[in-house]
Design a protein around this nucleic acid. Structure first.
Lengths: 226, 226
DNA sequence: TGCGGCTGTCACCCAATCGTCACAGTGGCG
DNA sequence: CGCCACTGTGACGATTGGGTGACAGCCGCA
C-alpha cells in the first residue's frame, strides 16, 4: 500500500509541482485548494500525511491545522506546513498548532521528499520497506528476523542479522566501515576498530557458500553483490 | 552546489587559514568574527556546516552553539568546535551543547578537512555528485565503486579508482600533479614525487583502450578528455 | 551465582597495494 | 641535429589493510 498524502495549497502551480514529485516518489496524492475542501477530504479518507500551505484564502493553514487536530479521525495525522516567512516558524511548530515539520518557500523537491520520508518513517506509515529480501537462494525475512539459504535457516545473532540486512538493502553499493558502524552499531564513531571486520567474518562463516554475496572492496568497505 | 561552511573565529589569521583550506577543497566559505555576526549570518543563509571557535569575545562558542540549536532554521546544522583545551571537550560533545565534532588547536589543515568531509558525508549535504559518470563506453559507478569498459568491469584499486573519478569529474580541465596529490592523496606536502605518474601508468594499463581518455599535458599535468 | 552465547578488541600474518628509484623514451626548442 | 626537461616503464622493498584465532567483559538466564 502506497502512503496517501493530501496536499493543500491554493496556487495550482505549487500543487502541481508537489503532486508531481510525490507521485514520482511512489506516493498516492490527493489535493485540495482551500480549507473546506481539505477538511472534507481529510475526514473522508484519512491520509498518512498532510502537506499544508499556511497562506490560504478564507481559512488559513493555522485554522485548518487546529481543526484537524480536534477531529479524532485526523488528530494524529502528521502535518508538514509550507510557509514563506521564517517568523511563522515558531508558531507552526509550537504546541498550539503542533505541525510535525515545516518547509520554507521556496523549497527544492529534494528537500520536500526528504522531510516527507522522514515523517512517514517516524509514524511507521512508510511501510513500503520490503518485508523480505531474496537473492537467489538467500532469503532474508525482516519481520521474522530469519535468514535462510536454500530453505535451510541460518542462525544469526542480532548484530549479524542487522549487518546482513543493511548490506542487502543497499545491495551493490559499497558501504564504508564508518557507515556500517553508524548504521548498524549506531556509533557516532570517530574511533577506529576492527569490529566490523570481525562481524563480517562471523557472518561469512555462518552463511557458508551464501557468503559469496559479501564482497570486500579493499581500501573502501564492503558490498553486497546480487 | 558547493556545501556552504560558516567559519567563526575572532583571530583574522586563524580565519584566513581555515578559509583558504576549505575554499581550496571546493567549499563555499563565509566568515564571522564574533557571536552576533555568526548568528546573523547563520540565520540569513543556513550553512551546511559551522566551524566555531570556543574562545570569542563577548559571546563565547558555547553560547552561540546553544543559541543556534534553539532556532529552528539552524537547529540541525552540524557544528565543529575549535578548542584549545582538552578539558573542554566533554562539554563540547555533551548533550547540553551537542556539537558534532571538535578539533583541538593547533590543528593541521588536513585534519580539519578530514573532519569536515566526514561530517558532511554523514549529513548527506556533501551533495549528490552524479552517481554515475559515462563517457562513451566507459562507465564509472561511484556508489558501487566499479568502473567498466564496454560492459566489462575493470578491476581498480582504491587509489586508481579515486584518481580516475577525480579526473573524470573534472573532464576537460587539466589537473596538475600537485592538485592530484592534494585531492586524491590528501597530502598537504609539496613533496615532489613520481607517484602520480606511476599511478597514471597503472591506470592506463588497466583501462586498456579506454586509456585514450587520459591525456598527458606536458609540463602541466593530466587531463581527462571525453 | 554460575553458565553460555554475544560482542568488541588485540595480536599476528599474508598478500595486495603503494611509493620510490633508476633508467629508457619522447617531445620541444635552439 | 642534439640537448634537456619531462614523462613512461619496470622492478622492488615497505606499508597497509583485512582475514583469522584467541580472549575477556557483558548480559540474560537458570
Amino acid at each position: 500500500m502506497k502512503p496517501r498524502i493530501l496536499v493543500v495549497d491554493d496556487e495550482p502551480e505549487a500543487v502541481e509541482l508537489v503532486e508531481f514529485n510525490l507521485k514520482q516518489a511512489g506516493y498516492a496524492v490527493n489535493t485540495a485548494a482551500d480549507g473546506a475542501e481539505a477538511l472534507r477530504k481529510a475526514r473522508a479518507q484519512t491520509p498518512d500525511l498532510i502537506v499544508l500551505d499556511v497562506m490560504l484564502p478564507e481559512m488559513d493553514g493555522f485554522e485548518i491545522c487546529k481543526t484537524l487536530r480536534l477531529d479524532a479521525a485526523t488528530a494524529r495525522v502528521p502535518i508538514i506546513m509550507l510557509t514563506a516567512k521564517a517568523a511563522e516558524i515558531d508558531r507552526v511548530l509550537g504546541l498550539e498548532l503542533g505541525a510535525d515539520d515545516y518547509i520554507t518557500k521556496p523549497f527544492s523537491p529534494r528537500e520536500l521528499l526528504l522531510r516527507v520520508k522522514k515523517i512517514l518513517a517516524r509514524s511507521g506509515a512508510d511501510e513500503k520497506v520490503e518485508e523480505q529480501l531474496r537473492f537467489g537462494d538467500l532469503l532474508i525475512d525482516l519481520p521474522r528476523h530469519l535468514a535462510s539459504w536454500k530453505g535451510r535457516s541460518i542462525d544469526l545473532t542480532a548484530t549479524e542479522f542487522k549487518l546482513l540486512t543493511l548490506l542487502a538493502q543497499r545491495a551493490g553499493r559499497v558501504q564504508s566501515r564508518d557507515q556500517l558502524l553508524r548504521d548498524v552499531w549506531e556509533y557516532d564513531s570517530l574511533i577506529d576498530t576492527r569490529t566490523v571486520d570481525t562481524h563480517m567474518r562471523r557472518l561469512r562463516e555462518k552463511l557458508g557458500s551464501a557468503s559469496k554475496h559479501l564482497d570486500t572492496v579493499r581500501g573502501v568497505g564492503y558490498r553486497f553483490v546480487e
